[in-house]
Amino acid sequence: MRRVTTFSQIVRTCEEKKWKFADYFLHQEMEWRRRNGEDSSPETILEKMDINLRVMESSVKEGINGVQSYSGLTGYDATRLNTYRSEKASLGQSIYLDAVVNAIAINEVNASMGLICATPTAGSCGVVPGILLAAREHLKLNRRQQLDFLITSGGCGLMIGNLASISGAEGGCQAEIGSASGMAAAALAEAAGGSPRASSNALAIAIKGLLGLVCDPVASLVEVPCIKRNATGVVNAITAAEMALAGMLSRIPTDEVISAMYSVGQLMPSALRETALGGLAQTPTARRYTRELKQTGKITWQDSKKLPSSE
């Protein structure tokens, strides 16, 4: 199989062969492993992906039970959200809320030195699984469809990483949460029955929505604003998938959107690319947290263990 390098080529190949993105990326993975002398059977690949999925499931469970970050700055927000969902859900139940609970849970586990699966990075590890574990309930996805969701996400991330970047130090947060959101949007559109063209459009719309997002981690930690931005990535992805499933088209082709993301990353000053020298990281409060962390090894902003009573 010829190794194609653009989304427009992938969509065309899928249309010719009547493939989904997941079929395409599974074949690509088999080809890569065969060339590398590794076991290239689909069963092995699916089994390997299933291990990743099990880690995602365990992270959500752990996060909802309640974890605090190692620094002390964040924690127990997934528990808050989960309680809110089951007791009030003032805006009603939705796939959005379910996915947000999962995404916050997973990223809080990451900050607590818990076990996670990077997707594509540790700081953005809540977006793709957050949506998958919500969508599988709402769309009644079987195990194979769930693994296909991850294969499509992974394949799209591979494309973005090679055409642009998935590193906050290189491209800012748009490269981490933005990429994760694009990956999840494409996979969600596909899981909901959308065509490869719809997935490609979902990815483009999602990336455009977060274009220019800076990486400005408070006290250099993977916590603020990272954890809540995983929720931003989730709602952005679901919305992009909805638009693409409705037949809306990105006026700028997907490949050009990804190039634009790369060039925005290049233009972004280094103060806004993970160095904690700008943005939220340089606010007076953030500087106070940074000093406190340096002096005491912990940050105390409140007793985060105490869950607020439903005021």
Binding site: F25, E29, K48, M49, I51, N52, V55, V109, N110, A111, S112, M113, G114, L115, I116, C117, A118, T119, P120, A122, C125, V128, L150, I151, S153, G154, G155, G157, L158, G161, I166, M183, V222
Partner: peptide, 11 residues
């Protein structure tokens, strides 16, 4: 794809 979905690691 496992460069993207993975590694499994402690945060």
């Amino acid at each position: 794809i496992f460069d993207i979905i993975g590694p499994i690691m402690i945060g």
